Amino acid sequence: MATLLHLDSAVFSEGSMSREVTAAFVTTWREQHPDGKVVYRDLAADPLPHLDATAVAAGATDTLRGELAAELAAADAVLIGAPMYNFSIPSTLKAWLDQVIIVGHNAGAEGPVAGTPVTVVASRGGSYAPGTPREDFEFVQNYLEKVLSGMLGLEVDFIVPELTLARSKPEMAELIPLADASRTQAFAEAAEKAKALAARLAA
């Protein structure tokens, strides 16, 4: 029985592209794993505290950090909704990362969670793809790839719905066709990646 750890961090519960795509991923995952388990954390609705000196000193013996680390270690796969806020990740997701990464316990290429596949839905209102004017402002994929793979040894994959503000910003109206195409592709990738991951874990 495979376990999926699902984290959402978008502030809005309705109208959030990252939440919609992670939900689609989970739906396909459940279809492939009807007897499987999904552990869900809504980091916006139930935010974790920022890391403090006491928790750092306690490490894995800290009740909360130990719980989060054990939750991650028990997961066969991880799904993270990570919308771009002010060019970076939501602070609630950063708090989870700070709490769950424990040097000397689960960090490192040979750590207990190394190799666990993680799918990140990195939605953004504009486009920060290579070749676009704001390419240098992209700190979501760059950061998460480095911290998840570099600190925890996770196997990181991305789904990137872009231009999510096109229908709400008049100045972006000409980009609506591209936004719709990106949305369609994101949902297709969610289904495809969930199926592929389910098959891989079942093998």
Rank of each mutant, 00 (worst) to 15 (best):
F187I: 05
H33G: 01
T132L: 09
V100P: 00
G36S: 09
A190R: 02
A69F: 01
L7E: 04
A199W: 06
V100Q: 15
A188W: 04
A194L: 03
A95K: 04
A179P: 01
T164L: 07
A75Y: 10
G36L: 05
R30D: 08
I101S: 08
V26E: 13
V21Y: 08
V147N: 06
L79F: 04
H33M: 14
R200L: 13
A69V: 03
V38D: 11
A44Q: 05
G150E: 07
L79V: 15
S149N: 14
L197V: 03
A173M: 05
A10H: 14
R65G: 01
T92N: 13
A188Q: 11
A45V: 03
V140F: 09
P177N: 15
G131H: 03
T22V: 08
D8G: 04
A186G: 03
V120T: 04
D62L: 06
S182P: 13
A58T: 00
S182W: 11
S16Q: 07
P83S: 13
T92Y: 01
E67C: 01
L68D: 00
L197D: 03
D136P: 04
T61G: 00
T132Y: 13
H33Q: 15
V140Y: 03
P130V: 10
T92S: 11
S16D: 06
P133F: 08
M84D: 12
Q99H: 08
A24F: 15
Q141M: 13
L197I: 05
V113F: 06
L154F: 14
A55F: 01
T116G: 05
P133V: 11
T119Y: 07
A75N: 12
A60R: 11
A190L: 02
D157C: 04
T27Y: 00
P133C: 15
K195M: 11
P49C: 09
L148T: 07
T184I: 12
A129I: 06
V11D: 05
R65C: 10
R41H: 14
S149C: 09
S123L: 00
G36M: 10
E71S: 00
A190E: 05
A173E: 11
G131P: 02
A75W: 02
E31W: 04
H6I: 09
H33L: 08
D35N: 12
Y143E: 10
V147K: 09
L68A: 03
K146I: 09
L64M: 13
E135H: 15
S127L: 13
A188K: 14
L48C: 03
T63L: 12
A69D: 11
A196S: 15
A60W: 00
R200K: 14
Q99L: 11
D46V: 10
T184L: 11
P34A: 07
L48W: 15
V120N: 00
S91N: 12
A129N: 06
K193F: 14
T54P: 01
T92E: 08
M172W: 13
P130C: 10
S182L: 03
R200F: 07
P34D: 08
S182H: 05
G115D: 08
W29Y: 10
Y128D: 03
A69P: 04
E171K: 07
P90C: 04
R124S: 01
V113E: 01
L144C: 04
A173V: 07
Y128N: 04
K94L: 06
G153R: 12
V160W: 02
A2M: 12
A2Y: 02
V121D: 08
G108E: 06
F139W: 14
F158C: 11
D180P: 06
G125A: 10
T116M: 06
G126S: 15
S149G: 12
